[in-house]
């Protein structure tokens, strides 16, 4: 194996993993505030299609990425209204968001299937994804607001008693998650593919959800996990190209299996789960109780 091939593989892994990092870090921030949003896949799809359509109409990459971030935030805002104000069940609402997003993105993008565009340089976003992960880490562990965010995810009643607005902080966490998922989607349709196709996120949203657990809700581990997951899937494709006859499906199972193993390890010990998962995850907050 010569150097060119190695560099080529590293490039492919960087390009393929970046959307997982964006979606994963976004969902991590949401979950840190105590909210589980299973709508990642749907928000990514809507981000992907709105960015693509904006690019085709206006020709502006900047506007395309901006619109994807806003549409991701809008989708998550809908989720936030339901789970925070109307106190709906987070699991069911998140699933509804994904189902809604699959349908909505297909309807918006119908006329744009097969429209050719010029792809955007992915390396800008590769770098940006690292920057955002380290900024999130800094935010959570070095700033006061970050500490408040974490406190809201651990114990919303204590945070409320201390005078912090649980609803506002959760809203910010959810909106950040939605924006990042929208951005991850636009990366898929404008940098990675570059094209629009129904259901083009192809399960990456679910992998991003697994990633947050795999990273045990620690921002920097999102990078580690994403590159392991991304690397495995690229390795799988290359093994087949090199003629190794091992069923690729078992490689593709790796993220899900690894996540389950991590979940078993951290959950089996009370202290370890307390140190890893936000204690208020999926529990709605109601002042009157």
């Amino acid at each position: 194996m010569n150097l060119d091939i190695v560099i080529g593989i590293i490039q492919i892994i960087l390009i393929a993993t970046t959307p997982l990092v964006f979606a994963g870090i976004g969902e991590l921030v949401t979950e840190k505030t105590g909210v589980l949003n299973l709508g990642v896949e749907g928000m990514m799809l809507v981000g992907a299609v709105t960015a693509f359509v904006t690019l085709v109409i206006t020709g502006s990459y900047f506007l395309a990425f901006l619109v994807s971030i806003l549409s991701g935030a809008l989708m998550s805002g809908l989720f936030a209204y339901l789970v925070l104000i109307l106190m709906s069940n987070q699991v069911a609402t998140g699933l509804a968001l994904t189902i809604f997003g699959i349908g909505l993105s297909s309807m918006i993008g119908k006329q744009y299937i097969g429209t050719p565009i010029k792809g955007f340089n992915p390396y800008f976003f590769v770098v940006l994804s690292f920057v955002i992960v380290f900024l999130v880490h800094y935010f959570f562990y070095k700033t006061k607001l970050g500490l408040i965010f974490r406190a809201v995810g651990e114990s919303h009643h204590s945070s409320h008693a201390l005078g912090y607005s649980v609803i506002k902080i959760r809203l910010l966490g959810i909106l950040f998650g939605g924006s990042m998922c929208g951005l991850a989607g636009s990366y898929m349709s404008i940098c990675y593919a570059p094209m629009w196709q129904e259901n083009m996120i192809a399960g990456r949203g679910w992998i991003a959800l697994a990633l947050v657990v795999f990273a045990t809700w620690k921002p920097r581990r999102i990078l580690v996990g994403a590159y392991i997951f991304g690397g495995v899937s690229i390795l799988q494709m290359n093994l087949q190209a090199w003629g190794v006859n091992f069923p690729g499906q078992f490689f593709n199972m790796a993220p899900y299996l690894a996540t389950m193993i991590v979940l078993v390890i951290i959950s089996s010990n009370r202290l370890r789960i307390r140190l890893s998962a936000p204690a208020s995850l999926t529990i709605p907050f109601f002042k009157g109780r």
Partner: peptide
């Protein structure tokens, strides 16, 4: 219209249901 429009309806009905559920308990 793409057949995925069915998912839009499915998502909507669940949104409304979950939102209106508030009235059952509050």
């Amino acid at each position: 219209i793409p057949a995925a429009v069915g998912f839009v309806f499915q998502g909507l009905v669940l949104f409304y249901l979950l939102g209106a559920e508030l009235l059952v308990n509050y």
